[in-house]
Simulated scan of single mutants.
Amino acid sequence: MHLIDDDPAVLASLQLLLVSAGLEARGYQSAEAFMAVAPDLPPGCIVTDVRMPGMDGLEMMACLKSMEVNHPVVVITGHGDVSLAVEAMKKGAIDFLEKPFEDTALLRCIRVAIDSQASDADQDAANRQARQAIDSLSGREREVLEGLVLGNSNKMIARDLGIGHRTVEEYRANVMNKTGAENLSMLVQIALRAGL
């Protein structure tokens, strides 16, 4: 496990949590410090804050991608919003948690991230399943999904599509149900897997 957070207290707390859960954890107080060792990383999951002085978590993720470091990333932030979550997911984050979060939520995300390092066959099956879920959507449901993936609010989607706010909520609920997504980050992940 690799933890990046500029707040020493948060970093120490995260390390303690992961060690108590039986996971080995290394901490870094900046993205730059982490990037210095990134080319030689042992396997594992990366948990990073988004907003840090200097290089932020999203910039770090882009650098990791360009270096072909393909570790799963869980993004944490004290300043969460839909557009930030969508941007993090597009850059490859497995999940996005807003501080404060429950210890169990972080541990669950980490387990999912570790499991995400499954074989290519499993990845192909997940991509195929995501495409089938997206293909099951009606045209209007797909338009609502596209608005969500762009980080638009229900109000913005309603305005863009010329429909009522409540109608967007109904379509959004249908999209969540048909795709099996439990939350927005999961929905974005499904959409990205499907190539949306």
Rank of each mutant, 00 (worst) to 15 (best):
M1Q: 07
I4Y: 10
I4N: 05
D5I: 08
D6C: 02
D6K: 06
D7R: 05
P8R: 02
A12C: 01
Q15E: 12
V19L: 05
L23F: 08
L23V: 08
L23H: 11
E24S: 09
E24V: 10
E24W: 04
A25I: 06
R26C: 03
G27C: 03
Q29R: 08
A31N: 02
A33F: 04
F34D: 05
M35C: 05
A36D: 13
V37R: 08
A38P: 05
P39H: 11
P42V: 10
P43E: 13
P43Q: 08
G44A: 04
C45I: 15
I46K: 03
I46D: 01
V47L: 06
T48E: 03
T48D: 02
M52P: 09
D56S: 02
M60Q: 10
M60I: 12
M60W: 14
A62G: 12
L64V: 13
K65T: 15
H71L: 15
P72F: 09
P72V: 11
V74A: 10
V75T: 14
V75K: 08
V75L: 13
G78S: 15
H79R: 13
G80T: 14
D81Q: 13
D81V: 07
D81E: 15
S83T: 15
A85C: 14
M89D: 06
K91Q: 12
D95R: 01
E98Y: 01
T104R: 14
A105T: 10
I110H: 08
V112I: 14
A113F: 07
I114N: 09
A121Y: 12
A121I: 14
D122H: 11
D124A: 14
D124F: 12
A125Y: 04
A125V: 11
N127Q: 14
R128V: 12
Q129W: 02
A130E: 06
Q132T: 11
A133Q: 15
I134H: 09
S136C: 08
G139R: 14
G139S: 15
E146S: 12
V149N: 00
V149R: 04
G151S: 10
S153R: 15
M156T: 15
M156W: 07
D160I: 07
D160T: 14
I163F: 07
V168C: 07
V168A: 05
R172S: 10
N174K: 10
V175M: 00
V175F: 00
M176P: 01
N177T: 13
G180N: 01
A181D: 01
E182R: 04
L184M: 11
L184Q: 01
M186K: 07
L187N: 01
L187E: 00
V188M: 05
V188S: 02
I190L: 00
A191S: 07
L192C: 02
L192F: 04
L192Q: 07
L192Y: 03
L192S: 03
G195H: 05
L196G: 12
